[in-house]
Amino acid sequence: MKKERVINTQKLFIATLFFGATAFGYAQDTIQANDNVPAETEQVQTTIQNPVIDALKKQIEANPNDTEAIVKLATAYQDVKDWNSALETWQKMSTLLPDWSPLYYSQAYVYQSMKDEDNAKMAYEKYIAAVKPEELEASKKNLGYAHFFVAYKLQETDKEQAKQHIAKSLTFDPMNAEAMKLSEFLKQ
């Protein structure tokens, strides 16, 4: 299980840096290795010294503008489910690279993991707005999920907007079964 998480983290980091956020899009599907760990164990994991996190923090202290180290640190916090630290780290990135769309997707993922769906929705909307035309191809899965999440949150308050978002979701990811179900529900 731990080896799978390390591989997923490496893939996540590489994809985030080089291809926008392609592999990061379905992080909710790939970061499930510790979903069955009791909450008490998770808390212990976040308070234990982590040599990777400690090294990255020192690296960032030495160079506060090292965006590669900041991405690695945010990802490391996510790996140990330290959502508050991950969010704080992603927010640091937003001051350094405010136009970098993957950071908004990352923030949305963290908010969603924290069960803060309103802020997750806002971050997904920022992500949608921040994706540049040249990033569209590499970001299709992420855009599909982002539009799906926004549609899901809007379904009760603004059905017409929800329909627009779910249509865009299916444009980017036509095989998303959950998006298809929501689309059918919104047609009723």
Rank of each mutant, 00 (worst) to 15 (best):
T41S: 10
P64L: 02
E68I: 09
D54T: 12
I70N: 05
D66W: 05
V80Y: 04
A74S: 13
A55N: 13
T67K: 10
Q49A: 14
V52M: 02
N65E: 15
K57Q: 15
D79H: 05
A74W: 07
E68V: 14
T41V: 12
K81T: 04
V52S: 01
T67Q: 13
T41D: 15
A55P: 01
Q78P: 03
E61G: 01
P51L: 07
D54L: 11
K58Y: 03
T46E: 13
K58A: 09
L56P: 00
K57R: 12
A55E: 07
P64S: 10
V44A: 15
V52K: 08
T67Y: 12
Q45N: 13
V80N: 04
T46Q: 15
Y77P: 02
K58C: 04
E42F: 07
A74G: 15
Q78W: 07
I60T: 07
T67E: 14
N65C: 01
D66G: 03
D79E: 15
K72D: 14
V80I: 12
D66V: 03
A69Y: 06
A76M: 05
T46F: 07
A74E: 08
V52G: 02
E61K: 14
V44M: 11
K57L: 05
I48D: 08
Q78H: 11
K58W: 02
Y77Q: 04
E68H: 11
A55H: 00
Y77M: 09
V52R: 07
L73Q: 12
P64W: 06
A76C: 08
Y77D: 05
N50M: 07
L73T: 04
P51A: 10
Q59V: 00
T75G: 10
D66A: 04
N50S: 13
Q78S: 10
L56Q: 04
Q45K: 03
T46K: 10
K72H: 14
A74I: 04
I70H: 03
D66Y: 07
T41K: 15
A74L: 05
Q49I: 14
A69S: 15
T41W: 03
Q78E: 10
D54A: 11
Q43M: 08
V80A: 06
D79Y: 06
V52W: 01
